[in-house]
Amino acid sequence: MKVTIEVNGGPVSAEVEDRTLLVHYIRETAGLTATNVGCDTTSCGACTVLLDGESVKSCTVLAAQADGHAVTTVEGLTGQDGELHPVQRAFREQHGLQCGFCTPGMIMATVSLLEHNPKPTRAEVREGLEGNLCRCTGYHNIVSAVVDASGQEVAR
């Protein structure tokens, strides 16, 4: 079927199989490979993108379901001049990553979390990111990054 999805502000159209998953459409059709396929079972959150501004796990959405809608990936957060989005900046400054595999999903889930809850407590961050797994960090610096991105002081 013919699918047209607005990806990071520009339309991407392609003829794809009906069973195509959104994550594969993003990686292979749109050519944006920051979004990772991790568990492929709606658990790890590595494939998290924004669909109409809300975080979703793109391994569990059909490209057909996103037809006519808007998708934002982590590539779409960065400004034209390469300026980092506040959440990207905070993950970098707080060192909210080690290997980086979960990071695109973590960042997109964080953008959505802060949209719903602009000043979360550390506990609310942990609850809010329960759908994103990190196997390296132990989450401490990720939580700090989200608190930092929300404009709150990071407790030491």
């Binding site: 959150g45 998290t48 975080s55 979703v56 959405v61 809010g128 329960e130 759908g131």
Partner: peptide
């Protein structure tokens, strides 16, 4: 139910 992403869908 599930997590934030699941609850969006």
């Amino acid at each position: 139910v599930g997590d934030q992403q699941v609850r969006h869908r």
